[in-house]
Design a protein around this nucleic acid. Structure first.
Lengths: 116, 116
DNA sequence: TTCACGTGTCATTTTTTTCTTACACGTGAA
DNA sequence: TTCACGTGTAAGAAAAAAATGACACGTGAA
């Protein structure tokens, strides 16, 4: 049971990647059709450098993928498309993922101090 | 189809609330049993003010709820517990939610300007 | 009264994220 | 050559989030 989802760290990265209006719209747009950077920037109304940053964050989280292609007239176009991600978030799913968190280390080891 | 999930803004808030190691651990801990602030702070190894801030973020997103109770010896304890949230994230689900985003727009209405 | 334990907030610093501006390179067409 | 359109990055400003420390209040027990 338990489809054994992503590790805690990966989950945090994916959630952080989606927890932004612009990035949510990027995923939404790419869900319809793949697109290249400049065109996507125009459609979303954001600057290229800014879009570039958001795309990197999404790609790093594994939510989209991009590949460079050559257009007929020789231009290098970078096309992005969404991956088939499928995250099911419930309290128990979170509880399971949290067990593999490595980020926050207050006291790494097990220190079950429970004296009154 | 489409269970008509949260609005785009609500989704962003929920995702942002979960996209943090400490908050993920808070939810994970509360998924097992409800707990009060001070005790939770000790278990997670974080300060009360910090935990308080994270709890507010989680409660604002509707992922946990807290209520004040009086203990036998008269102390006011604030107990928190997780809600029955259930988020299913896929590209199409995101696409649907993105349609109700209001955050990132200078002007409210639809301004599909695409002239050069 | 003083202590331990519970609640909370406020002000401030530190850190991270977001965004802008400016720059660089490559190719086809006028 | 110059222009338009594609790619990318780097530096710094601006904004938001995270974290800390010092407070204040209430109650029961020593």
């Amino acid at each position: 049971m338990a489809v054994s989802g992503p590790t805690g760290d990966d989950l945090v990265e994916m959630l952080a990647a989606l927890a932004n209006p612009i990035r949510l719209r990027i995923v939404a747009t790419l869900a319809g059709r793949r697109d290249y950077v400049s065109q996507l920037a125009r459609e979303l109304g954001v600057s290229r450098p800014l879009l570039h940053m958001h795309l990197r964050r999404l790609e790093a989280a594994g939510l989209i993928t991009g590949r460079l292609e050559l257009s007929d007239d020789g231009k290098a176009m970078k096309y992005y498309e969404v991956t088939d991600f499928d995250l099911h978030l419930t309290a128990s799913a979170v509880a399971e993922a949290a067990q593999t968190l490595t980020r926050p280390d207050p006291g790494k080891g097990p220190a079950p101090k429970e004296s009154t």
